[in-house]
Amino acid sequence: MTAMDPRTHVIVLIASGILTFLATELVKVHMLVAVSALYLIWNGLLRNALYFVLAYSAMTALLPVIPDISAILGIILFTFSKMMPIAMVGAALLNVPPGRMMSALQRAYAPKPVVVMLCILVRFFPLLLLEFKAIRNGIRARGIFSNGHNALLHPIRAYECYFVPLIVRCLKLSSELAASAELRGIECDRVRTTIYPIGLTAVDRTAAGLYVLIGGMICGLGGIVQ
């Protein structure tokens, strides 16, 4: 399996954004999710595809029920489920090794600060999750809330306990990451290389073309039927 160029993912991401906007009926969104799932599978991300499809199915199953309980929750759920195709293609983009992504973006003439920012962003998210986990452990280890119920009773304190250490850690981490990046030559003027092959191949063109074509047909289809 040849991995696709990150630029293909970007093009497909834009396409999925437009298509999601055009897909006004639920059936069309269903089909777009299916196409995006196929795209993920094509990229070797079977597990992600399954996860997203399951999440989407659960949301669709809940949609008829939730608005009766809470209208706002219903709207949130509806928005989330509609955004699913975008999230799925986005996941494909997030799974690209950052080094590969940086060099592909530089080839696409993206300005260096944007490239660096994207790279750090991609790296920072998983780090943030780990930090959050560590903070949760820290809170449990100190025994501040005896159970989850207790945390709900004191929302302000819970907020404080999570966010004060998170901010302190983020400041420290971002400063150290930046120092480390500087020392490892991120500011060099040269064009980056990458140990991964990049370049738009026939596979890329086919994948992007198929996605746009099928997606377009799905959205157009409804129009013809009606």
Binding site: L130, G185, T194, I195
Partner: peptide, 29 residues
Amino acid sequence: IFQDPRSQFFMNVVRDELAFSAENLGIPP
């Protein structure tokens, strides 16, 4: 080499991490 490894790694996989400096300097793959 900094004290805390968490704050000096940029990549997810070891090979990419080793490549980082070399890639930044535009060294051929």
